[in-house]
Protein backbone atom coordinates (compact mmCIF):
# COMPACT_ATOMS: atom_id res chain seq x y z
CA UNK A 1 0.00 0.00 0.00
CA UNK A 2 2.69 2.36 1.10
CA UNK A 3 4.89 1.35 -1.86
CA UNK A 4 2.09 2.06 -4.40
CA UNK A 5 1.49 5.48 -2.77
CA UNK A 6 5.16 6.37 -3.10
CA UNK A 7 5.14 5.19 -6.75
CA UNK A 8 2.21 7.56 -7.51
CA UNK A 9 4.03 10.42 -5.88
CA UNK A 10 7.12 9.79 -7.92
CA UNK A 11 5.02 9.66 -11.07
CA UNK A 12 3.28 12.90 -10.22
CA UNK A 13 6.59 14.60 -9.46
CA UNK A 14 8.05 13.34 -12.71
CA UNK A 15 4.97 14.58 -14.59
CA UNK A 16 5.27 18.04 -13.00
CA UNK A 17 9.00 18.12 -13.82
CA UNK A 18 8.28 17.23 -17.42
CA UNK A 19 5.57 19.88 -17.64
CA UNK A 20 7.87 22.48 -16.14
CA UNK A 21 10.65 21.49 -18.49
CA UNK A 22 8.24 21.73 -21.39
CA UNK A 23 7.05 25.11 -20.17
CA UNK A 24 10.65 26.28 -19.78
CA UNK A 25 11.55 25.13 -23.26
CA UNK A 26 8.39 26.74 -24.65
CA UNK A 27 8.92 30.09 -22.94
CA UNK A 28 12.59 30.08 -23.87
CA UNK A 29 11.65 29.43 -27.49
CA UNK A 30 8.95 32.14 -27.42
CA UNK A 31 11.27 34.61 -25.75
CA UNK A 32 13.95 33.97 -28.30
CA UNK A 33 11.48 34.93 -31.01
CA UNK A 34 10.50 38.13 -29.20
CA UNK A 35 7.11 36.93 -27.96
CA UNK A 36 5.82 36.82 -24.47
CA UNK A 37 3.79 33.95 -23.31
CA UNK A 38 0.20 34.39 -22.34
CA UNK A 39 1.04 33.44 -18.81
CA UNK A 40 3.80 35.98 -18.41
CA UNK A 41 1.55 38.61 -19.93
CA UNK A 42 -1.18 37.90 -17.48
CA UNK A 43 1.25 37.85 -14.59
CA UNK A 44 2.90 40.98 -15.87
CA UNK A 45 -0.41 42.81 -16.07
CA UNK A 46 -0.87 42.25 -12.39
CA UNK A 47 2.68 42.56 -11.15
CA UNK A 48 4.02 45.51 -13.13
CA UNK A 49 1.69 48.11 -11.61
CA UNK A 50 2.35 46.64 -8.22
CA UNK A 51 6.09 46.75 -8.82
CA UNK A 52 5.81 50.34 -9.92
CA UNK A 53 3.76 51.20 -6.85
CA UNK A 54 6.21 49.52 -4.51
CA UNK A 55 9.21 51.09 -6.22
CA UNK A 56 7.55 54.53 -6.04
CA UNK A 57 6.79 54.01 -2.36
CA UNK A 58 10.30 52.87 -1.61
CA UNK A 59 11.81 55.85 -3.32
CA UNK A 60 9.62 58.18 -1.29
CA UNK A 61 10.42 56.37 1.89
CA UNK A 62 14.11 56.47 1.11
CA UNK A 63 13.81 60.24 0.85
CA UNK A 64 11.93 60.56 4.11
CA UNK A 65 13.37 58.02 6.34
CA UNK A 66 17.09 58.31 6.62
CA UNK A 67 19.25 56.76 9.13
CA UNK A 68 21.10 59.27 11.34
CA UNK A 69 24.33 58.39 9.62
CA UNK A 70 22.95 58.98 6.11
CA UNK A 71 21.34 62.27 7.17
CA UNK A 72 24.61 63.51 8.66
CA UNK A 73 26.50 62.47 5.55
CA UNK A 74 24.02 64.25 3.31
CA UNK A 75 24.09 67.39 5.43
CA UNK A 76 27.85 67.39 5.25
CA UNK A 77 27.74 66.92 1.49
CA UNK A 78 25.23 69.77 1.11
CA UNK A 79 27.40 72.07 3.21
CA UNK A 80 30.46 71.13 1.17
CA UNK A 81 28.61 71.70 -2.08
CA UNK A 82 27.33 75.07 -0.84
CA UNK A 83 30.87 76.08 0.08
CA UNK A 84 32.07 74.93 -3.31
CA UNK A 85 29.29 76.91 -5.00
CA UNK A 86 30.14 80.05 -3.01
CA UNK A 87 33.80 79.67 -3.92
CA UNK A 88 32.97 79.20 -7.60
CA UNK A 89 30.66 82.22 -7.55
CA UNK A 90 33.42 84.34 -6.02
CA UNK A 91 35.85 83.08 -8.64
CA UNK A 92 33.32 83.93 -11.33
CA UNK A 93 32.88 87.46 -9.96
CA UNK A 94 36.67 87.90 -9.79
CA UNK A 95 36.92 86.62 -13.33
CA UNK A 96 34.41 89.14 -14.64
CA UNK A 97 36.07 92.01 -12.76
CA UNK A 98 39.49 91.00 -14.05
CA UNK A 99 38.10 90.56 -17.56
CA UNK A 100 36.58 94.04 -17.49
CA UNK A 101 39.81 95.55 -16.17
CA UNK A 102 41.78 93.72 -18.83
CA UNK A 103 39.51 94.97 -21.59
CA UNK A 104 39.72 98.49 -20.24
CA UNK A 105 43.50 98.42 -19.91
CA UNK A 106 43.84 97.00 -23.41
CA UNK A 107 41.67 99.81 -24.73
CA UNK A 108 43.76 102.38 -22.87
CA UNK A 109 46.94 100.82 -24.17
CA UNK A 110 45.61 101.14 -27.69
CA UNK A 111 44.73 104.78 -26.98
CA UNK A 112 48.20 105.37 -25.62
CA UNK A 113 49.78 103.75 -28.69
CA UNK A 114 47.63 105.93 -30.94
CA UNK A 115 48.53 109.10 -29.03
CA UNK A 116 52.06 108.77 -27.78
CA UNK A 117 52.06 112.41 -26.60
CA UNK A 118 49.34 111.68 -24.04
CA UNK A 119 50.31 111.27 -20.41
CA UNK A 120 47.53 109.45 -18.63
CA UNK A 121 46.69 108.62 -15.03
CA UNK A 122 44.10 105.95 -14.40
CA UNK A 123 41.52 106.77 -11.76
CA UNK A 124 38.45 105.25 -10.19
CA UNK A 125 35.14 106.99 -9.63
CA UNK A 126 34.78 107.03 -5.84
CA UNK A 127 31.91 109.44 -5.44
CA UNK A 128 29.12 111.41 -7.00
CA UNK A 129 28.26 114.87 -5.81
CA UNK A 130 24.64 114.75 -4.64
CA UNK A 131 24.38 118.50 -4.35
CA UNK A 132 25.56 119.11 -7.93
CA UNK A 133 22.52 119.41 -10.21
CA UNK A 134 24.73 118.44 -13.14
CA UNK A 135 25.98 115.32 -11.40
CA UNK A 136 29.73 115.76 -11.03
CA UNK A 137 31.90 112.78 -10.19
CA UNK A 138 34.77 112.44 -7.72
CA UNK A 139 37.94 110.54 -8.65
CA UNK A 140 40.50 108.92 -6.36
CA UNK A 141 43.52 110.71 -7.86
CA UNK A 142 44.68 114.23 -7.16
CA UNK A 143 47.72 116.46 -7.27
CA UNK A 144 49.85 113.70 -5.71
CA UNK A 145 49.35 111.77 -8.95
CA UNK A 146 50.05 114.79 -11.11
CA UNK A 147 46.43 115.78 -11.73
CA UNK A 148 45.68 119.47 -12.19
CA UNK A 149 42.58 121.59 -12.56
CA UNK A 150 41.41 121.60 -16.16
CA UNK A 151 42.77 118.16 -17.07
CA UNK A 152 40.48 116.28 -19.47
CA UNK A 153 38.91 113.03 -18.30
CA UNK A 154 38.23 110.26 -20.80
CA UNK A 155 37.39 106.60 -21.11
CA UNK A 156 38.07 104.32 -24.04
CA UNK A 157 34.56 105.29 -25.22
CA UNK A 158 35.17 109.03 -25.34
CA UNK A 159 35.22 112.28 -23.40
CA UNK A 160 33.74 112.37 -19.88
CA UNK A 161 34.50 115.89 -18.66
CA UNK A 162 37.11 118.09 -17.09
CA UNK A 163 38.72 118.30 -13.64
CA UNK A 164 37.34 121.40 -11.91
CA UNK A 165 38.67 120.93 -8.40
CA UNK A 166 41.64 119.00 -7.18
CA UNK A 167 43.25 118.19 -3.85
CA UNK A 168 46.16 115.92 -3.03
CA UNK A 169 44.08 112.75 -3.05
CA UNK A 170 40.95 113.42 -5.08
CA UNK A 171 39.64 115.37 -8.02
CA UNK A 172 36.17 116.57 -8.88
CA UNK A 173 35.12 116.30 -12.49
CA UNK A 174 32.47 118.42 -14.18
CA UNK A 175 30.68 116.37 -16.81
CA UNK A 176 29.89 117.41 -20.37
CA UNK A 177 26.37 118.27 -19.22
CA UNK A 178 27.76 121.10 -17.04
CA UNK A 179 27.45 124.54 -18.69
CA UNK A 180 31.00 125.42 -17.58
CA UNK A 181 32.51 122.63 -19.67
CA UNK A 182 32.66 124.17 -23.11
CA UNK A 183 34.32 121.95 -25.69
CA UNK A 184 35.42 122.98 -29.17
CA UNK A 185 34.06 120.18 -31.37
CA UNK A 186 33.59 119.26 -34.99
CA UNK A 187 31.59 116.80 -37.03
CA UNK A 188 34.36 115.05 -39.03
CA UNK A 189 31.99 114.02 -41.85
CA UNK A 190 31.21 117.61 -42.79
CA UNK A 191 34.11 119.39 -41.12
CA UNK A 192 31.76 121.85 -39.41
CA UNK A 193 32.78 123.10 -35.99
CA UNK A 194 30.86 124.33 -32.98
CA UNK A 195 30.95 124.70 -29.23
CA UNK A 196 29.58 121.89 -27.12
CA UNK A 197 27.90 122.90 -23.85
CA UNK A 198 25.32 121.44 -21.52
CA UNK A 199 22.38 122.65 -19.51
CA UNK A 200 20.23 121.15 -16.79
CA UNK A 201 17.17 120.41 -18.93
CA UNK A 202 19.15 118.68 -21.66
CA UNK A 203 21.38 117.01 -19.11
CA UNK A 204 18.36 115.27 -17.58
CA UNK A 205 17.76 113.73 -21.02
CA UNK A 206 21.48 112.84 -21.19
CA UNK A 207 22.01 115.26 -24.07
CA UNK A 208 24.36 118.17 -24.74
CA UNK A 209 24.19 120.81 -27.44
CA UNK A 210 26.63 121.65 -30.22
CA UNK A 211 26.04 125.36 -30.79
CA UNK A 212 26.87 127.86 -33.49
CA UNK A 213 26.19 125.69 -36.53
CA UNK A 214 25.38 127.45 -39.78
CA UNK A 215 21.71 127.71 -40.75
CA UNK A 216 22.52 125.62 -43.86
CA UNK A 217 24.45 123.06 -41.87
CA UNK A 218 25.07 119.62 -43.37
CA UNK A 219 25.38 118.01 -39.97
CA UNK A 220 22.67 115.41 -39.61
CA UNK A 221 21.38 112.75 -37.27
CA UNK A 222 23.93 110.04 -36.50
CA UNK A 223 26.99 112.17 -37.26
CA UNK A 224 29.97 111.59 -35.01
CA UNK A 225 31.21 114.56 -32.98
CA UNK A 226 34.86 114.80 -31.88
CA UNK A 227 37.04 117.40 -30.18
CA UNK A 228 39.02 119.83 -32.35
CA UNK A 229 41.80 120.47 -29.87
CA UNK A 230 41.35 124.23 -30.28
CA UNK A 231 41.80 126.18 -27.08
CA UNK A 232 44.26 123.72 -25.60
CA UNK A 233 41.79 122.32 -23.09
CA UNK A 234 41.06 118.99 -24.77
CA UNK A 235 43.24 117.07 -27.22
CA UNK A 236 42.04 116.77 -30.79
CA UNK A 237 40.13 113.75 -32.06
CA UNK A 238 38.54 112.51 -28.85
CA UNK A 239 35.05 111.14 -29.48
CA UNK A 240 32.37 113.18 -27.77
CA UNK A 241 29.15 111.63 -29.02
CA UNK A 242 26.71 111.37 -31.90
CA UNK A 243 24.17 113.86 -33.19
CA UNK A 244 20.65 112.95 -32.14
CA UNK A 245 18.74 115.75 -33.87
CA UNK A 246 18.98 119.33 -35.10
CA UNK A 247 17.06 122.24 -33.69
CA UNK A 248 16.96 126.03 -33.95
CA UNK A 249 18.94 128.15 -31.54
CA UNK A 250 16.94 130.05 -28.92
CA UNK A 251 19.11 133.15 -29.19
CA UNK A 252 20.10 133.60 -32.83
CA UNK A 253 19.54 132.21 -36.32
CA UNK A 254 22.13 129.46 -36.01
CA UNK A 255 21.34 125.76 -35.68
CA UNK A 256 22.01 123.61 -32.65
CA UNK A 257 22.78 119.90 -32.83
CA UNK A 258 21.66 117.87 -29.85
CA UNK A 259 24.40 115.38 -29.14
CA UNK A 260 24.19 112.20 -27.10
CA UNK A 261 27.52 111.78 -25.29
CA UNK A 262 29.41 108.60 -26.11
CA UNK A 263 30.04 107.96 -22.43
CA UNK A 264 27.20 107.60 -19.95
CA UNK A 265 28.68 109.00 -16.72
CA UNK A 266 26.26 106.97 -14.60
CA UNK A 267 27.84 103.80 -15.96
CA UNK A 268 31.44 104.93 -15.59
CA UNK A 269 33.54 103.44 -12.80
CA UNK A 270 37.04 103.84 -14.18
CA UNK A 271 38.51 106.69 -16.21
CA UNK A 272 41.80 108.11 -17.45
CA UNK A 273 42.91 111.65 -16.63
CA UNK A 274 45.03 113.27 -19.34
CA UNK A 275 47.70 115.09 -17.38
CA UNK A 276 49.63 116.15 -20.44
CA UNK A 277 49.17 116.16 -24.20
CA UNK A 278 50.58 118.05 -27.14
CA UNK A 279 49.05 121.51 -27.29
CA UNK A 280 47.69 121.51 -23.74
CA UNK A 281 47.19 125.02 -22.43
CA UNK A 282 47.88 126.62 -25.80
CA UNK A 283 45.23 128.99 -27.04
CA UNK A 284 44.47 129.58 -30.71
CA UNK A 285 46.83 132.54 -31.01
CA UNK A 286 49.66 130.52 -29.50
CA UNK A 287 49.67 132.21 -26.11
CA UNK A 288 49.92 129.72 -23.27
CA UNK A 289 47.12 130.07 -20.77
Amino acid sequence: MRRSHRGRSIKALAAIAVMLCAAAIYTAWMGQNGHSTGLSSVVGMVTTPLQQLVTWGRERLDGLVLGPREAATLEKQVAELQQELDRKNQELADYYITKRENEMLRAYLELKQLHDDWQMVDATVVGRDSSDPFGGIILNKGTAAGVQTGDPVITDGGLVGRVVRVSAAYAKVALLTHPEVGVSVQAPRTGETGILTGDKRLGDQKLVQMKHLDTRTHVSEGDLVVTTGLGGVFPAGVVVGTVERLTDSDVDVSKVALVRPAVDPDAVFSVMILTDFMGQGETMDGVTE
Binding site: P133, P179, E180, D199, K200, R201, D204
Partner: peptide, 15 residues
Protein backbone atom coordinates in the same frame (compact mmCIF):
# COMPACT_ATOMS: atom_id res chain seq x y z
CA UNK B 1 24.51 133.67 -10.05
CA UNK B 2 26.72 131.90 -12.64
CA UNK B 3 23.88 132.47 -15.08
CA UNK B 4 23.26 128.86 -16.06
CA UNK B 5 20.13 128.37 -18.17
CA UNK B 6 17.08 126.61 -16.73
CA UNK B 7 17.28 127.93 -13.16
CA UNK B 8 13.57 127.43 -12.43
CA UNK B 9 13.67 124.01 -14.04
CA UNK B 10 16.66 123.08 -11.84
CA UNK B 11 14.79 124.30 -8.77
CA UNK B 12 11.78 122.16 -9.66
CA UNK B 13 13.60 119.02 -10.71
CA UNK B 14 16.68 118.98 -8.48
CA UNK B 15 16.59 121.29 -5.49
Amino acid sequence: LPGYPGAVYALQTHY
